[in-house]
């Protein structure tokens, strides 16, 4: 089972039962969002994970990409922790979350450790 994968727009890693997704693209279009979700689903091979989603590189996005991610971005996801910086990323993420439905636990964090602590609660319980 793969622990690491990378494409032109994002890096994926699974560690301690959490999927780490780092966006490396600055502009998020629908085409890019679709590819990121597609590759994530392939990487996860049918298993849901809590997701650490680092969006700090992104400085712009299209409405189509945001609407697509609202619908399909939470497939195979137990919970999402967004990693952001204060300022630009925070502003944009808050706008994005306005439309989000609460059926998957999602929160944003300025630091990595509290994000991981939040996600640990949503890991697959060890059999």
């Amino acid at each position: 089972m793969r622990q690491y994968y990378k494409n032109a727009y994002a890096e994926y890693r699974i560690e301690a039962g959490i999927l780490f997704l780092y966006y490396t693209t600055r502009c998020l279009s629908l085409h890019i969002a679709t590819k990121v979700v597609q590759d994530r689903l392939r990487f996860q091979i049918d298993t849901p994970y809590p997701i650490y989603c680092d969006v700090r590189e992104i400085i712009d996005s299209t409405k189509e990409a945001r609407d697509y991610l609202l619908q399909e971005g939470s497939v195979l996801t137990r919970a999402i922790a967004f990693r952001i910086d204060k300022g630009l990323t925070e502003g944009m993420l808050k706008f994005y979350l306005l439309h989000r439905e609460p059926h998957i636990a999602s929160r944003y964090f300025y630091e990595k450790d509290p994000a991981i602590a939040f996600l640990k609660k949503y890991r697959e319980p060890k059999q």
């Binding site: 300022g87 502003g91 944009m92």
Partner: peptide, 12 residues
């Protein structure tokens, strides 16, 4: 790509 308050307002 500036991370300023003004840029955030513009993005929003």
């Amino acid at each position: 790509a500036d991370n300023t308050e003004t840029e955030t307002i513009i993005a929003l």
